[in-house]
Amino acid sequence: MTRKRRTGRVLLTLDPETLRSDLVETAVGLARAYDAELVTMFVKTADVVNMAALPFETTVITKTGRTRTISTTDLDRQLDRQAQQAEALVARTAGKVRWSFRVATGHLEQVVAENAAEFDLLTICGSTARRVRPVRTPGHAALLLLGDGLRRQRPVAAVYEGDASVLATAQRISNEFDAPLVVAIVAEDRTNRSRLRRNVRAWFNRRRLTATLIEPEPDQTLDMLRQLRPGLVTVGRASRFCAPLHDALDRGTEQTPMLEVPE
């Protein structure tokens, strides 16, 4: 019998850019996989609020190319409406997953930083994810930079460098989203690679599970992951690949969501 690790609480942040049903569905799936409560926080981002308050005629360009003048009142009303939509969306999607909803105002990274301590998994979506990098994530919390969302039916990739929690997390997510699991065993030398391979096989055999194993050279790991086009990459917080993946996300050239798992 596989016993799920109880994570406790999953935070999903949404803002005007990331109010999308597929992101909420993903977060609900994660909460289910972790047997956790989903806390959705809609953030009225300070930048947007400040923009409307600037002392000149502020206009926005709609997605159809029309120009629209906005005021602080308009914006507040729209943000409130979006917050209601977000709550309704979560209520509709949650099913049997326990959930709660909050609204916050401020800079997203500050909001996350202020609330991070009470969560075990932080799920950050959209381009704002790039600004979360400076946030100091609590030691026990996993961080999921979801970007534009999980790619369904694509494999979940785990970068294994000896940390079993990466395997457990990746397996749980692949199981929840019915996605194949690919484990990239990364080690500097053949001896360590053999050891890690034995560990991985033993881990899966004990649980009567299967996964595809690949063994890229360390300097080719990122390229191989790109070619694999995974739906999600799971990586240990201490991994050497954390920073490059963050950088890639920051540059906006790599859309693959990344789950950073604490040791």
Binding site: P16, E17, D47, V48, N50, M51, A52, L54, T58, T59, V60, I61, T62, K63, R68, I70, D74, L75, Q78, L79, R81, Q82, S127
Partner: peptide, 12 residues
């Protein structure tokens, strides 16, 4: 900077 608002894109 370019911002994404509930009504569209704006600059500030």
């Amino acid at each position: 900077t370019l911002l994404n608002t509930p009504m569209g894109y704006g600059f500030a």
